[in-house]
Design a protein around this nucleic acid. Structure first.
Length: 276
DNA sequence: ATATATCCCTGCGCGC
DNA sequence: TGCGCGCAGGGATATA
């Protein structure tokens, strides 16, 4: 699914068609995603204005004027498509379709249905079970290298596992964990608590750079991800290691090649020559 | 507390 | 062309 850059791309794409707009109609074609939609889902949204779109971790928060927030997670294959209502035709796996007061359709499409939607009172969001365990936003400058280092010091599991564990840092999934570690020349299997302070500082810095570059590129499109306007993301063209087993390591000074591992049940890509 | 396994679901690419 | 298999951007839950 979308990791932080893809969710952020989607948020930016949805702002023009949702912020300040009225939800005139909400059509539900499948009320069971990861969980069932909450009771009276459409009724509680119909006629309401969307005040603001926020991203927290890999979640979208649509703050609605009646003090509730529409929470959306895109799972592995969730995407949004914007169309003119007059041109819209229901597509396979379009599960929830929003109609705004500007004649536009915002369709949520999710083949694997690992996504979720919920309506939660805005005031209680931060204490909600979906969110209260979430760790630091990597792009927030209030998250300091020192805080990152202290967190790594307490953990003996691999650095890649820690990066992907949403209790510590949020928004980083398999792609950006692999990419950030390669840029930092840190091997994914290193125990978190073996990183020195300078390494932690470098890693946080590089993760931020990679995430920001990916946002600028509209995210990464492997199969599913599209920007809401239908454009592909193109950060996948800038991958150094992800999905490139046996390729020569792209680092100028390195003669190694990319190796594929299985780690925590997921694919890990790394260059054993320059990632130490 | 923490490391592994399993499950949710559909689609795609590959080898035969 | 078709079939079976493995794999996929996530994450909650159970088990040891």
């Amino acid at each position: 699914m979308p990791e932080l850059p893809e969710v952020e791309t989607i948020r930016l794409g949805l702002i023009p068609v949702l912020e300040g707009k009225i939800l005139e109609e909400i059509a539900v074609y499948r009320d069971q995603l990861r969980y069932p939609l909450p009771p009276l889902f459409s009724e509680r949204l119909k006629g309401q204005k969307v005040n603001r779109l926020e991203r927290r971790a890999k979640y979208l928060w649509l703050h609605i004027e009646n003090s509730q927030t529409l929470v959306i997670h895109l799972g592995m294959s969730g995407r949004f498509k914007i169309e003119e209502a007059s041109l819209y035709a229901l597509q396979k796996h379009d599960h929830v379709v929003f109609y705004n007061n500007a004649g536009q359709v915002i369709a949520y499409n999710d083949p694997r249905r690992f996504g979720l939607m919920d309506l939660i009172p805005t005031a209680t969001l931060k204490d909600h079970p979906l969110f209260r365990h979430l760790g630091a936003e990597p792009l927030e400058t209030t998250f300091t290298p020192e805080a990152f280092y202290q967190l790594l010091r307490k953990r003996q599991q691999s650095i890649k596992s820690t990066l992907m564990d949403q209790r510590f840092i949020v928004g980083i999934g398999n792609i950006y964990a692999n990419e950030g570690l390669w840029v930092s020349q840190i091997h994914p299997f290193r125990p978190s608590n073996s990183l020195t302070y300078p390494e932690a500082e470098t890693l946080l810095d590089n993760l931020r750079t990679v995430l920001k570059k990916a946002i600028l590129a509209g995210g990464s499109t492997l199969k599913d991800h599209l920007q809401p306007d239908g454009k592909l993301g193109y950060f996948q063209n800038q991958f150094s290691v992800y999905g490139r087993p046996l390729a020569p390591c792209p680092r100028q000074t390195c003669q190694g090649f990319i190796k594929k591992y299985t780690q925590d049940g997921r694919s890990t890509f790394a260059c054993d020559s320059c990632q130490l």
